[in-house]
Computed example of a mutant assay.
Amino acid sequence: MDIKELSDDLIAWGSQQRMQDMYIECLGDNWRVLFRKGEAFLGKRTLTEEQAKQLITRFKYLGDMDVGETRKVQLGAISYRLPGEFRRLRLSLVGDYRLQESMVIRFLYPLSKTEQCFLVPSQYELIKDYTRRRGLYLFSGATGSGKTTLMYRLARFGGRVLTIEDPVEIEETSFTQLQVNPAIGQSYDLLIQLALRHRPDVLIIGEIRDQETAQAAIRAALTGCKVFATVHASSVAATKSRLRDLVGNVSELTDCLAGVIYQRLLLTKTWGLGALLAYEFPDKEVVNGNWQTNLESLLQQGEISEECFLRES
C-alpha cells in the first residue's frame, strides 16, 4: 500500500466511524496512528518510521505547510478528497526537541450531517429561545466539545450569518465564511470591522484569543449585532473571568454580554457521545446550576462511568 492509499484508508475509516481526531505520533522508537472519539482512543495502528514521516509530509503538502520545517508549530486545513465526497480536516503539527514531528488531524463534518445529542434535551430548547435577542454570546468548553457545531446550529435561526474563523472548520454554504490570514494582514480585528459593513444578523467569531479580538467582538455587539464567539475556559464563571481579564473595561462587557454557554461531550452507554451544558443569561436571570446534579443523575442511571463522573465534577 502506497502513502496515498494509506492516507485515504485512514481518513475514510475515521470518517465512517465518526471519529473526532487522528494522531500520528512517535513514542520512543515506535510510530503509531491513533483515533479519538470523546475520551476513548480507538483504532490503534502501528507504522514504520518511513510510513509515518511520509504520511506527515503528505498532509503538510496538502495543507500548504512548510514541508522542510520540523521545529515550529504549524496549522492548516484541507478538504480531503474521498470517493464521492470531500472531508474537511484541520491539521496541527509540532516538533519535539529531537525534531520528531507529531500531527493531530481533526475531522470536521458538514452541519447537515452532524447530529448533536443533548443529554438534557430541554437545555438546547432553552438556549435556542434565549439566544434570539442581540448581544454577545460566549461559548466555551474543551477542544472538540462541539462549540462550533452548536453555534452554527443556533445561528441558522438568526437570518443572514457571517463567520470569521482561523481556519474555517464547518463548511456551510448558507453562511458567508471568512478566514483569518495574517500573511496578507487579515486579522480577526480587521475582518470584524469589515464584516459589520455587510450588516449580518449573526456574526460568528471562531475564537477570542487576545485583547484585540475581545474588544472587537464587544464593539460589534454594542453596535446592535448578535455575536457568537468561542473562548477557551473550563466553566461559565471561568469564561466571564477570562473576558474580564482580556478587555479590562468591565462596563462595556456588562452592557453587551447576553449569555454564556459551557459545553462538554460525555461518553454515555446509550447515546454514545452526548453534550451536557451549563449556561447563564444575565438579562433573563437564568442560571443553570445543575451541572453536578445532572452528572449525578447520569451516573445513577448508569449512563456514565464513575471515572467520567469524577473527572467532570
Rank of each mutant, 00 (worst) to 15 (best):
Y130C: 14
L150F: 11
F139S: 07
K147H: 06
T163W: 05
T148H: 06
S140N: 06
D129A: 10
G146N: 13
R134V: 08
S145T: 05
K147S: 01
L150N: 12
T163F: 01
M151Y: 01
S122K: 14
K147T: 02
D129H: 11
R160I: 06
A155C: 02
E125D: 15
F139L: 09
L154P: 05
L150G: 08
K147M: 05
I164E: 03
R133S: 14
D166C: 00
L138W: 10
Y130P: 03
G146K: 12
L136S: 07
F157T: 14
Y152D: 12
S145D: 05
I164G: 03
T143K: 02
T148R: 02
G135S: 04
F157K: 15
G144H: 08
Y130K: 15
Y137E: 11
K128S: 13
R134S: 11
T148I: 07
G135D: 07
G141C: 11
E165Q: 10
Y152F: 10
S122P: 03
K147A: 04
A155K: 00
Y124A: 08
L126W: 01
G159D: 03
R132I: 10
E165A: 03
G159H: 05
L150Y: 12
R132S: 13
T148N: 03
L126Y: 04
Y152G: 06
A155W: 01
R133H: 14
K147C: 05
L126F: 01
L136P: 03
Y130R: 15
G146R: 11
S140W: 06
G159S: 05
R153Y: 00
S145H: 06
F157W: 13
G159W: 01
M151N: 02
R134L: 10
R153T: 13
L126T: 05
L162Q: 09
Y137D: 09
S140G: 10
R160M: 07
D166G: 00
R156I: 01
T131E: 06
G141V: 09
G135M: 04
I164H: 04
F157C: 13
G158I: 10
G158A: 14
Q123A: 13
T149P: 02
D129P: 03
G144D: 07
F157R: 15
A155Q: 00
L150Q: 15
T163L: 06
G135I: 06
T143A: 06
S145F: 03
A142S: 12
E125Y: 09
D129L: 09
K147W: 06
T131Y: 05
Y137L: 12
Y137H: 14
Y137R: 11
T163H: 01
R156C: 03
D129V: 01
T131P: 05
M151V: 00
R160D: 12
Q123R: 10
